[in-house]
Design a protein around this nucleic acid. Structure first.
Length: 718
DNA sequence: AATCGTAGT
């Protein structure tokens, strides 16, 4: 499924008039009452050649007959640009309500709306606009709005004013302000789109046609996700990378020839650099040495891996000497500073001497280059078949990243990156058999890999999350006071829903902070928690960066360290200025919501002993379920349910091992780590979360015995 | 004791 539309309250009777006005060319734009520009007609000719244009009448016919529909079409068929404007042409927006079209990414919402505004011959931000976080390019005249799926979901959560029956936190989610809602790129199965899909089916007036669900299921994976296993991971004799030729991807622009390895590769990282650069000594036959001009894109899984590969490749290339064309080796991942990200668009190195072939760019990238970023000039793609993907284990409440095989859809997308400038080649570092039999058709939907922190209960999901995942989500919300015992959303819960802050515990923390007189500080902490790690640590200056961070460190932990940063020192102190700026915008947004709720913004007296303790206590108002206790063995054990042995993440500023600590994140890499950790006191657990630290319902363990002593002491004092 | 996929509000 490539796209799907859901429309509501369509004015069926009288759509011919407006449709005719565009089609028959009366010369006047019905939306602006201005004569069409010359450019409009030029673009119209191109538009008419798009495949969807042929089915325009059929589309209108379907619109008359159905309340919801699913549209399927190839990339480049014109769905994203044409369907929304067809929808507007039917006249649904005459009731002053908009047509909304969602996209999974901001840059898509921005660029598509710009194109459609041109096509409809209007100013961007007037009749056609877009809304993304921190940027609203719409106005009173807007009838067609592109937006991120997350943005529409937020509107669905926060603008529904009607009373909600128990257990149905989103019973009236569907946005009366829209005449029609189009969920584009629904095949990507983002968390937001999946939830909106569920909401669409709940909507009053939705006829819930069976086809909707059946079509939707087309993009469901054929079998469960199997993290970590990869066809190439099988043991086999070491060998150089050879490829057998097979098949074609009909890209929109140029064809891409696909090559597979005849045998599985043992070490995909080594195979990837080797393929990009040179073959094994026995058969030096690889891209840089053997193929014609064009840049190379190699997909790897993470920053560390990419930096390693870059270093090794530079070395390899140096060893090759000046008999081969010059090479520019570049990394690409999201946390790379902006100016270094921009380098991927630099031209390749010039020929060594006049008449020689051009030099080459070799880019090592995470899957940021798979969908969100397009680099022209790429002719060769090396695809080892891996990506880091989120997996969720509800039993221990842990979301972690695991290197896992990609899906066929991802592989197709990666290959397509080679064909933008001229016919290209894609080298897959796995066998064709593995591709056919072991890769899933589609990436497993995000909703099945996530810790659900929001209010989604009796919901008609395409692929319902595991009962345990839902149960865990409900349990957390109940402990936080967001849902009552009947499962109904409380007032606190609806306030939490409006705070665009990571997970629920953070929202709870913010709402509680005025009671501990530290809302200013908690606002800063939460903003920073929702920002990419600001502490840069370039390999060549790792020590200097660690020293710089040490100057900010707060003795009581990582959360308080976040407060010690100042933007003006960014560069000298290895801080990512972009992260700091983004934290600032997030802070402003959260502050507006706090103000709207009438919550006081205050700070404890900086000179009082309570300054830092109040802030740390406040962390527990939200994160009381993410606490670890230091056992006599010297290891940490997470507290209460499903205890796990964990270690402090090496990035922590804590120099000592506190008896109790609260953590923001549980990460599973080389072992179980807790990251972003602060020192807390056992007494505070009882003070801030007595309902959770009720010893009657607590497994027997060291932590329990310590808490018993604290209760006893308190009882004596009282 | 030894470190972090990508989106989105």
């Amino acid at each position: 499924m490539q796209a799907s539309g859901q429309k509501r309250k369509l004015d069926v009777g009288d759509t011919s008039g407006l449709m005719a006005s565009t089609a028959s060319g009366t010369g006047v734009n019905p939306y602006t009452n201005r004569p069409y520009s010359r450019r409009f007609y030029e673009i119209l000719e191109t538009r008419k050649r798009l495949p969807v244009w042929e089915q325009k009448d059929e589309f209108f016919e379907m619109m008359r007959k159905n309340q919801t529909m699913v549209l399927v079409g190839e990339t480049g068929s014109g769905k994203t640009t044409q369907i929304p404007s067809f929808m507007v042409d039917t006249g649904v927006t005459r009731g002053k309500r908009m047509v909304a079209c969602t996209q999974p990414r901001r840059v898509a919402a921005m660029s598509v709306s710009k194109r459609v505004a041109e096509e409809m011959d209007v100013e961007l931000g007037e009749e056609v606009g877009y809304t993304i976080r921190f940027e609203d390019m719409t106005g009173t005249k807007t009838i067609l709005k592109y937006m991120t799926d997350g943005m529409l979901l937020r509107e669905a959560r926060c603008h529904a004013q009607t009373a909600r029956p128990p257990g149905l936190a989103m019973a009236d989610p569907l946005l009366e302000r829209y005449a029609a809602v189009i969920l584009d790129e629904a095949h990507e199965r983002t968390l937001s789109t999946d939830i909106l899909f569920g909401a669409a089916e709940e909507a009053p007036g939705s006829s819930r046609p069976r086809e909707t669900r059946d079509h939707a299921r087309l993009c469901r994976p054929a079998r469960p996700h199997q993290g970590g296993r990869h066809p190439a991971a099988r043991p086999q004799a070491r060998g150089h990378v050879r490829h057998t030729r097979r098949g074609q991807v009909p890209g929109r622009l140029h064809p891409v020839e696909i090559f597979y390895t005849p045998e599985p590769e043992r070490d995909y990282l080594e195979a990837a650099t080797r393929t990009a650069c040179r073959g094994a000594r026995t058969r030096p036959c690889h891209v840089h040495l053997c193929e014609g001009e064009g840049d190379i894109l190699v997909f790897l899984t993470g920053e560390q891996e990419i930096e390693d590969a870059c270093r090794k490749t530079k070395q390899e290339v140096d060893n090759l000497g000046d008999q081969v064309p010059d090479v520019l080796v570049l990394p690409l991942y999201s946390t790379l500073p902006m100016d270094r990200q921009r380098q991927i668009f630099d031209p390749p190195p010039p020929p060594r001497k006049p008449g020689d072939p051009m030099g080459r760019k070799i880019i090592f990238s995470t899957n940021i280059a798979e969908t969100s970023l397009t680099i022209d000039g790429i002719v060769y793609v090396v695809d080892p078949g891996f990506a880091k993907q989120k997996v969720y284990n509800p039993r221990i409440r842990v979301e972690s990243l695991l290197v896992s095989p990609i899906s066929k859809a991802s592989a197709h997308q990666r290959a397509g990156r080679a064909g933008r400038t001229k016919p290209g080649k894609c080298f897959r570092l796995y066998t064709e058999v593995a591709y056919k039999t072991e890769l899933m058709e589609q990436t497993y939907p995000e909703i099945l890999r996530s810790n659900l922190g929001s209010d989604l209960v009796h919901f008609d999901f395409m692929d319902p999350p595991a009962p345990e995942t839902l149960m865990r989500a409900l349990e957390l919300l109940n402990y936080l006071g967001a849902l009552d015992d009947e499962g109904a959303l409380t007032e606190l819960g609806s306030m939490m829903a409006e705070l665009p802050a990571g997970h629920c515990p953070q929202a709870k923390m913010l709402l509680y902070s005025p009671q501990l007189s530290c809302s200013n500080e908690i606002l800063s902490v939460v903003s920073m928690l929702n920002t990419p790690n600001p502490f840069m640590r370039p390999r060549e200056a790792a020590k200097a960066a660690d020293e710089a961070k040490a100057r900010f460190q707060h003795v009581d932990g990582d959360h308080l360290t976040l407060l010690n940063e100042s933007a003006s020192w960014c560069y000298d102190n290895f801080l990512n200025a972009r992260s700091m700026k983004s934290a600032d915008s997030i802070r402003a947004q959260l502050m507006r919501v706090m103000n709207r709720f009438g919550l006081e913004l205050k700070s404890p007296d900086f000179n009082s002993k309570e300054y830092y303790t109040n802030i740390r206590k406040c962390l527990l108002a939200g994160f009381f379920m993410q606490v670890a206790h230091l056992e006599r063995t010297g290891h940490y054990l997470t507290v209460k349910d499903n205890q796990a042995v964990v270690a402090l993440h090496p990035s922590t500023v804590l120099q000592h091992k506190p008896e109790w600590c609260v953590y923001n994140e549980f990460v599973l890499t080389s072992k179980n780590y807790i990251r972003m950790v602060s020192d807390i006191k056992g007494d505070w657990l009882i003070e801030l979360a007595p309902h959770y630290y009720d010893l009657k319902n607590f497994p027997s363990c060291e932590a329990k015995r310590t808490l018993e002593r604290i209760y006893l002491k308190k009882g004596r004092a009282a």
